[in-house]
Each structure stands twice: as C-alpha cells, then as structure tokens.
Design a protein around this nucleic acid. Structure first.
Lengths: 226, 226
DNA sequence: ATTATAATTGAACACATGTTCGATTGTCAA
DNA sequence: TTGACAATCGAACATGTGTTCAATTATAAT
C-alpha cells in the first residue's frame, strides 16, 4: 500500500540554502527558474513541487501568484537571530544591582551605547524573554572570571536552582557578587567560577537577594595602542 | 534657462519608506505597480521615473529587467548585523592552535554547532573581515580570565602591537596561551588578563608564534540542574 | 509670454514568471 | 509481479511585471 514516504533529501536542503544565499546576495528572493537552475532541476513544475512540500512542512512561506514570492519561514530565517538587550547600569562590589521594573516595558533607548545585541543562537531556547545587561565595573567580580568592562547578560530572577550562576546582593555586607549558587540545609554556598578560588558560605540567617541569573558573558577585547 | 531643479520631494521619501516597509513585511521587494499604488502614482512609467532618480542618487539599487529587483542601498539599509564565525577547533594548553588556511575560503558548515553568530555591533569596525573562533578546553587559559567552554573569537594575525590580546604558540614549550602582548628590546612580555597574576617574560631567543588577535570572548552560562 | 525642462499620462510591448496538466518513470510495499 | 504513490518531465498557458515611447501638462527661469 504505502509506497515510500516522502523524504527530505539533500535537494530540499540545497533549495533552502540557495534561497537564503540568494536573498542575502541580491536583496530579493529567487524565481522558481533560478532555483531550478541552481539545484539542477530542469522543469519549473518540479521546483514548484518541491516548494509546495517545503511550504507544507513549514520551512518556507510563499506568496502564491507572486513573482519571487518565496522566503524562508520565520523559524528558519534570521527573524529571531538578534536580541537587543538593554544595559541598565553597572554591577560593582559595593553597589546594589539595578533590575528592570516589573511594570515598565523593558524599553530600549535607540542609543547603541545602552544596549548590546546578542545573537539568539548563543542563548539556550529557554533563556529567551526579558533580559537585561550590566557592565562590570572594577575587579570585584574577578573571582567569577569576569573582568572590568565585561558585559553580563542576566535574566531577571529572585530564586535559583543549584548550579546556576546568579547575581546576588548581600544587604548585610552591602556587597554584590556573581557566583554559582548552591543551597543546602545549612544555608548557601557561593562558588566562584574560578575553580582555584574558595567558595563562600552564607549562613541561613543572613539575608541574600537573588537579582538575576547569568545567561551570557561577553568580553570585547579592544585593541589598545601601546 | 534652468527650469526648476529636480527636488527630493516627500514622494521620494515615501517610496523609500514603502520599499523598506514592504520588504520587512513580505520578505521580498514590491513591484513597480505596488509602489505606484501605495504612493498614489497611477502610471508605472512615472514610478520608474522616480526609481531611476533614486537609483542615480544612490538611495536604492536596482536589478534591471528583474521583477521586484529593487532594494534599499546598503548605506540606508541596516548594514549586515550578523556575523557567522566558524569554530575551527579547540584551544588548549598543550595543543597547537588551528588556524584557517589562507587559500581555502573560510567555509561554513551548515552545522550550527560549528559556528557562532556574532552581532556585528559587538565588534569595532576595524575588526571585520575573516574571523575564526576556538572553543577553550581546560583550565589552562584561566590566567587570561578565560574558562573551560568559553569561545574566543580571533582575527588571523602573525604579528601584534603592544597591548593586544593574542593567541600564542610557544614551540619550545609546546604550549598555547592567550595573553596581552608586549614587545621590548629584551624580548616579549606576556601579561595575563587577570591583574593579580604574574606576567611571563620570553627572551628574545625563544621562538614565539602569534596565531591571531583576540577580538571577543563569549561565555554561555548554561544553567546546570542540581 | 516664451522657453526649457520637469512631471505626468496612457498605452502598448516584450518577456519574466507562477501555475496547470497530462504523461512518464522510479520506487517501495504487499 | 503489481498496485500505489512519489518523482520527474515537457509543454502550454495566463498573467505579473519591467520597459519604452510619444504626447501632454505643470513649473520655474528668462
């Protein structure tokens, strides 16, 4: 009964690749014939046949009856490829951590200097959503392997699971740190990222405010003249 | 003699705007007729007339004889915002650094796991061009504030200026390191990024191979379950 | 007013391009 | 083998779409 099921062969892949490349190079999508030429499919109807399949499978979107009316589906395309994350302030040893207000839409100034752009491919799927970034000032985070000038991207959070790297405010000490977070019956254990440094133990009694989970650390290495 | 000179009226502006909007919405550029319809220009020849002007003035680029062959000039459009940088291998203490072959086109596997995407806004203008990335294996780069699993983005180079962070292969020691590079009459001084650590002095006599300049360091902080 | 040129029109043309359809061939499962 | 469907072909068709051109109208400088 069932004959061989339609497979997603290399040609399909090649077509998707070609559409992407062509779009990037020309600024507009290819025609059916151009696709066929490149993938060595001599008949336009066959290309159409392929495109129909790709459309059904959700890889592309088509505007029917429209020349060059083909594009990669949002999911594949560079749609979600960029994230603009606002830099809310600095993170430093002696200062509380600025966090985004809940109500206010995390809004972005157009000013480039107050935002970083992140390739979403750098983020695990789950970490999407509202993010904010802080610029590290001073050497106080150095035991977290984070240096002056680095940018840490955070996901707002008030609690964490063991093993996650979090930004913490210790009210009693008036201190901010970035540490791997572990909780046990005696209190908290804060491990530096640098394995050669000693973890800090926080007794249960001491207050501890988690401000966010670290999702990404970016260091631009500016070449400095002599 | 001179009649009124061709002015850049609001229609021109409107057309540019429309091309941009349309492209963003549909994923492909509009036709001449669609433009005319939107800007309330009833004759296709007049739209063509406008487009010719816009092309001469450098606002748009056209592929003549091609349907929907119009796009905003690069200068207007948002310059390429993404970089795809191939991950050529790992960088570790005891291993030579893999560098891209000069001849071979920096080729990108489709495989996402072998490339990182970088927002070009993270890079200084000058650092564009061929880049490659390496994944850090082990703790050996820890004095450069770079940890196991980090990704370093490099620009191929065989020499460096003082103050630049470079990837270095020391043949005599069979060792790879990332350090800030300083050269003086006595040889080389390699400073760790971590200011608390001691710099290394390399005598003039010892060979030293620079493989690339560090442009960016990225650390994905994967949340680890308990 | 006159004139030169810009702006605009309308229509026709040529061909680029998506679509359709019948026929043929290839390939798997029963 | 045979049935069923996928894959492929070739050609024709309808129309989408850039281009051209001659003619007309509007505008600013003389």
């Amino acid at each position: 009964m069932m004959a061989r099921k339609p497979k997603f062969n290399e040609r399909h892949q090649k077509i998707l690749q070609f559409i992407e490349d062509y779009q990037k190079e020309h600024g507009y999508p290819p025609t059916i014939r151009e696709i066929g030429e490149h993938v060595r499919v001599p008949s336009t109807s066959l290309v159409d046949y392929y495109l129909k399949r790709l459309e059904i499978q959700g890889y592309i979107e088509r505007a029917h009856g429209v020349s060059r009316g083909v594009r990669l589906a949002r999911s594949n395309a560079q749609e979600r490829s960029m994230f603009r994350v606002p830099i809310l302030g600095v993170i430093a040893a002696g200062q509380p951590i600025p966090v985004p207000e809940a109500g206010q839409t995390t809004y972005l100034t157009d000013d480039e200097s107050f935002a970083v752009e992140i390739a979403s491919s750098l983020l695990p799927e789950a970490e999407r959503g509202p993010l904010f970034a802080l610029e590290v000032k001073g050497d106080s985070m150095i035991d977290a392997m984070i240096n002056d000038g680095d940018i840490v991207v955070l996901k707002p959070a008030v609690e964490a699971r063991n093993g996650e790297m979090v930004a913490i405010w210790l009210p009693q000490r008036e201190e901010t740190t970035l540490k791997y977070f572990y909780k046990d019956r005696d209190g908290y254990l804060l491990k530096p990222a640098n394995p050669f440094m000693q973890p800090i133990r926080i007794p249960k009694s001491e207050p501890l405010e988690i401000k966010g989970k670290v999702v990404l650390v970016v260091r631009r290495v500016a070449p400095v003249a002599a």
